[in-house]
Structures are given as structure tokens and as C-alpha cells.
Design a binder for these strands. Structure first.
Length: 565
RNA sequence: GUGCCCAUGGCUCAACUGGAUAGAGCACUCGGCUACGGACCGAGGGAUUGGGGGUUCAAGUCCUCUUGGGCACGCCA
């Protein structure tokens, strides 16, 4: 049977006051110090209502409320009313629930029937997939799983950067210096090389820029020759990206990038004109956002070509029609914050009341201690190299592994990739990150490998445990650390909801670190396999639950578990 | 010049809509498997949350001033 202890506490209070259960439930907190209790009602806000001191209110309520089967004690402390739940009944409820629901434990249905669009990754065609794209990719993947976990349908969109004057430049560069053989061999590296060369040469010869603009105009006009080249570049790039997505365990529901909207732009321009929002300025067309304290939003460039804001507007309108989204999320770096504010505002001015459902989930850009990185100069850190380095380092740690020879590589791959993903998701996404190998590839406590290791230890015991009783007696789980584990696991649903509300996978990462630490502490102080029955059965059940929750958390972060390492 | 963001032990980071003694990891000092994997665990020292003022029963969190850093500001995305 399922039991919501927060509700039980709320109803106890509600019976003795004039507040309804929901109101009380919203006021309840979980004390930071678990010694204090499992739930607490801060009475400070009630002070002005009752015209009494919080201390008095807590004291009087404590006298009125009788403990019952679920709640073992009610104590007033410094204006807080603390509730202690009945540990045995609580443990039984939670562990049975995890055992019944398995992977679905912690899920919710608040999002049922609603669709959330998550735009992420969005690499540029013919440009390297670097660390910055990784942030967007892994955050997007995690958010998608988080939203699904609370009932939403999600649509993962990879808004490819496959349109724009850069392709004119690339075509120009190809015509001057392109080498088909080299491009087929290492597409992105070679395309980047000639793209960089183009920029160098264009410094000396401005005519090249003119030429590039012409090529893009032709491309936009549908000229067969340019289109063929563009398609070729795109196919080659996507093939390379697919390898990375495969390694990361990431997939998308749509690859509609900027080019997909190229024919939907005139409609956007018409709509803007209808509303008299367009204004000519310096031979270009803009939407003036002066009265909203923002710089103008450019819609059509002076050469008549489209620009990204226009494509984003077209994309948003298309998505609303196609999916009728509840939320339209953009996982894009913070430097583009202004762009999103501008184009959301333009959507609103166009009369789309749903513009409020568009959300920019920003992340701080990744900095590097020494090197200046730039695509234009070809100075970048490739994601592939980071992944390889991580996997190799993990392999070194696996010297004493008991795994079969043929399992070593796939296992190191999972742990190594997981280490990188975890390093990016364990910190607050809005805070600037300085990329260092040491931090990203860390295998110590607050790391992906630590969580993997914890899980593998648990699974190992489960594998070895035999001769168990039919029904665990949870009343035997009396160690402090055992209670702490159960308490921690019981909060999973709240943690997931918080992560969703904040669009912040870090919340899950911190949670699973804490749970893993508790498990390791338990592992060190409580024996299991050689323990007498029925305590053994109870502890095995506890480990089973813990492994289920850890696996779930790693899944929500986009990381695959391994059973042994 | 205008706007947005950040500042928490030596280092890297937590702290849910303001709530109880500001928590972790790394590093440092001590200690722990005749039990299941030591990529582990336990203990300890170390912070007047950049600085000043204010609001509040209560401020790392809100307001204001100030210092230092980052980012963005029409024809790249």
C-alpha cells in the first residue's frame, strides 16, 4: 500500500487548525538536520495570524496533536513543529513501493497529455563538434528524460546549423582549395581547414567575401550546383555526428535545422508586415524593440538574405502548429540570451500568446585555462578527443578488473563516457565552467565512476546473496545509515520534480552522489552475505532498492550503468 | 555607454518558493578490511558567504550603493 507521509502530517495539523491540507502541505519542510525530525512546520508565518509567538504556537499545536501509527512523535523546537515518522512503517512503505514499481519509482503524471519540445545540441554543419555542443547535448538529453519521467511527451529537436552565409564561404573555399579525397577521408577536419583558409585569404582579398555572399544567394535561390555541394557537406557531417551521438547514447526525434525553414521565411515577413512591425533601416528590415529596452531584431539583411532570428521565428510557429507544445525549450548558451529575449518578444508582438511558453534554458560557456579557442582559427578541443582520453584513463584504472577480456573495452567505454557526462551535469548549468582534464576525468567521490562503482558493488552483493527469506522484515533495518538511505530514497519524486521545475539536471546528480555516499558508508559498516537470517534478507532488499534508484538517476542523466567493472 | 550574469574554507562546487548549527569533494593531519571489490570508509583542523547600508521574527538568498570578474549589444549563429 502506498502512503504519503507528508499528507498524513498535513492532515494531522489541518484537523487542529482552520487551514486545509493542501495549504499546510505547502508549508511543510524537511529539516536540514534529520535528527530534528522527518517533517517540520515552521510556525513563523502563523504568528501574525494567531497574534502569538511562533514558539507558543508550536507548543500548543504539539499538545493538541496525537501521534498515531504513522507518526511517532510531535515536538516543538524554537518555533518549529517537528514530526518524526514511524520508522518501521515508513521503511516498509518505501521499500515495498520501490520493489513494486522498479524503474518507474519516482515517476509522476503531472505532465500527462502535454508535449514539451526540447531543442538541443544543434551543431553547425562542417564545423567540429566541440565541448560547447556537449553541454547542450547532455543537458537536452537529461531534460528530455526528466520531463518524460513526470509524464510529458517530449520531442527532441536537433536544430542543425545548416544554413547561412557561412555556406557561401564554404562553397567558395571548396572551389578554390577543395580536395575531394581528403574531404571523404576526414570530412569535418578538412572542411574546417579550407574554411579557416578562406578567412585568412579573405583578409587580404575582400572580393572573396563578395563571392561567398553570391554563392549563398544562389543556394537560397535553389541553384542545383550549390545545393548539391551543400547537401554533400551536410551528409558527411551528419555521418560524423552520428558516431558521437551513438557513443553518448543520445538520439533525436527531429533534425529539422535552419535550412528546413528557409522556404517558410517569406510567410514570417508577410505576417510581420501585416502587423506593421517591420521597419526599414540601413537597407535592412528590422523590428524595433526600443520601447522594450532592447536593441532591434533584424529580420531581413540588406542583401535580402535571411538571418537566424527569422529562421527561429519560423521554426517556433511551425512547432506550435505541428506539436501544439506546452513548452518549447531551447538549450542554448547564455551568450545568446538577448537573441532569445528579442525573438520571444517579436513572437508576442505578432499576436502569439504562446510565446510565454518558449523558454531559453541557458548554460554558461565553457572556458579553458590557457588556450583561446575559436572555430575560425581552427583552435578547438574536439569532443571525440575528450571522450577517448576519458575512456583510456578508465582503462588504466581497470588493471585489476575481474571482467572477461572482451568485456573490458565496452565497460571502459560506458564508464569513460559517463564520467564526462557526469562532470558536465554535476554543476549548476548557469555557472561558468573552466574545463580542465583533471576535473572532467576525476574518478573520486563526486564523479561518474564513483557512482558506477557504487552500483557495481551493490549488484555484486545481489548476485552473491542466496537462501533468502520470502518476506523481508524491514523492522530490522535499525542502523542509522540504513534509515538515512531509506529517507533519501523516499524523496526521489520531489527531487525529480525540482529538477524539472528548474530545468536543472544537477539536482539529480547531487542527489545520486549523496545516496551513493550513504550506500558506501552502509557497505563499510554492515555486512550482508555472511549475516544471519532474517537480517540478511532485509539488507538485500535495501540494496536492491538502492540499486534501482541509482540506476534510475543515472538514466535520468543519460548515463548507462554497468553491472561490474 | 546600455543591459544581463557571477563572487561562499587553500582549490572546485552545494544550499528547494528567504528558515534551525552555511554542507560536500579535492588538498592537509590521524585512523580503518581473519565481511560481500580499497576506484572504499571513519575522524579532525580550516568560512564573520567580496565590502558598506537597508527590509524581515529570520538574509548566502530580497533591495540599494560599491569593488572585482565574465558575457551580450542589426547585416555570424
Amino acid at each position: 500500500m502506498e502512503m504519503d507521509y507528508k499528507k498524513v502530517v498535513a492532515s494531522l495539523i489541518s484537523e487542529k487548525t482552520e487551514f486545509d491540507i493542501d495549504k499546510i502541505e505547502g508549508m511543510l519542510e524537511v529539516p536540514s538536520n534529520t535528527e530534528m525530525g522527518d517533517y517540520a512546520l515552521p510556525c513563523f508565518k502563523l504568528a501574525s495570524i494567531y497574534k502569538k509567538s511562533p514558539v507558543m504556537i508550536a507548543k500548543e499545536l504539539a499538545e493538541k496533536i496525537q501521534p498515531n501509527d504513522e507518526i511517532s512523535s510531535v515536538t516543538p523546537v524554537n518555533g518549529y513543529l517537528n514530526f518524526m515518522v514511524n520508522k518501521v512503517s515508513f521503511a516498509t512503505t518505501i521499500l515495498d513501493e520501490i520493489s513494486e514499481k522498479g524503474d518507474l519509482f519516482g515517476d509522476d503524471s503531472v505532465g500527462e497529455g502535454k508535449t514539451v519540445i526540447i531543442e538541443s545540441s544543434s551543431p553547425n554543419i562542417a564545423k567540429p563538434f566541440h565541448i560547447g555542443h556537449l553541454c547542450s547535448t547532455v543537458i537536452g538529453q537529461s531534460l528530455s528524460r526528466l520531463y518524460q519521467s513526470v509524464g510529458y511527451k517530449t520531442v527532441k529537436v536537433n536544430h542543425l546549423g545548416d544554413w547561412g552565409t557561412q555556406f557561401g564561404k564554404l562553397i567558395s573555399a571548396y572551389k578554390h582549395w577543395g580536395d575531394d579525397e581528403a574531404i571523404e577521408k576526414e570530412p569535418i577536419k578538412e572542411l574546417l581547414r579550407i574554411y579557416v583558409k578562406f578567412h585568412e585569404e579573405a583578409e587580404k582579398d575582400p572580393e572573396l567575401d563578395e563571392e561567398a555572399r553570391r554563392y549563398f544567394k544562389n543556394l537560397e535561390g535553389g541553384s542545383p550546383e550549390e545545393t548539391k555541394l551543400w547537401q554533400w557537406f551536410k551528409d558527411l557531417s551528419l555521418k560524423e555526428f552520428a558516431l558521437l551521438y551513438n557513443r553518448l547514447g543520445v538520439s533525436f526525434d527531429s533534425y529539422h535545422g535552419e535550412s528546413f525553414y528557409s522556404d517558410k521565411m517569406p510567410e514570417v515577413v508577410d505576417l510581420l508586415e501585416e502587423r506593421s512591425l517591420l521597419k526599414e533601416s540601413e537597407h535592412a528590415y528590422i523590428v524595433d524593440l526600443d520601447e522594450y529596452n532592447m536593441p532591434p531584431c533584424m529580420i531581413v539583411k540588406s542583401d535580402g538574405a535571411s538571418i537566424y532570428a527569422t529562421r527561429d521565428i519560423a521554426a517556433a510557429i511551425y512547432r506550435k502548429k505541428e506539436y501544439d507544445f506546452y513548452k518549447n525549450i531551447y538549450v542554448v548558451g547564455i551568450p545568446q540570451a538577448l537573441h532569445f529575449q528579442q525573438f520571444f518578444k517579436v513572437l508576442e508582438l505578432m499576436g502569439n500568446e504562446w510565446s510565454k511558453d518558449c523558454v531559453h534554458v541557458g548554460f554558461a560557456h565553457v572556458r579553458f585555462p590557457d588556450k583561446k579557442l575559436s572555430t575560425r582559427t581552427g583552435n578547438v578541443i574536439y569532443l571525440e578527443d575528450v571522450l577517448d582520453e576519458s575512456v583510456n584513463r578508465i582503462k588504466e584504472y581497470m588493471q585489476n578488473t575481474k571482467l572477461e577480456e572482451d568485456m573490458i573495452d565496452p565497460t571502459a567505454e560506458k564508464i569513460g563516457i559517463g564520467a564526462v557526462i557526469f562532470a558536465f551535469l554535476k554543476r549548476s548549468r548557469e555557472k561558468e565552467m573552466v574545463f580542465t582534464w583533471e576535473d572532467t576525468l576525476n574518478v573520486e567521490v563526486e564523479s561518474g565512476p564513483y557512482i558506477h562503482y557504487t552500483y557495481a558493488r551493490g549488484v555484486n552483493i545481489l548476485r552473491k546473496a542466496e537462501g533468502l527469506a520470502d518476506h523481508p522484515d524491514y523492522s530490522l533495518l535499525t542502523e542509522k545509515v540504513e534509515t538515512a538511505m531509506i529517507n533519501k530514497m523516499s524523496t526521489l519524486n520531489d527531487v525529480i520534480k525540482e529538477a524539472v521545475n528548474r530545468n536543472e539536471p544537477m539536482v539529480i546528480a547531487r542527489y545520486v552522489i549523496e545516496l551513493s555516499k550513504l550506500f558506501n558508508s552502509f557497505y563499510n559498516s554492515c555486512k550482508v552475505i555472511n549475516e544471519e537470517q532474517p537480517l540478511k534478507t532485509a539488507r538485500v532488499a535495501l540494496i536492491q532498492a538502492c540499486c534501482t534508484v541509482i540506476k534510475k538517476c543515472l538514466y535520468l542523466l543519460g548515463i548507462e550503468t554497468v553491472d561490474a567493472m
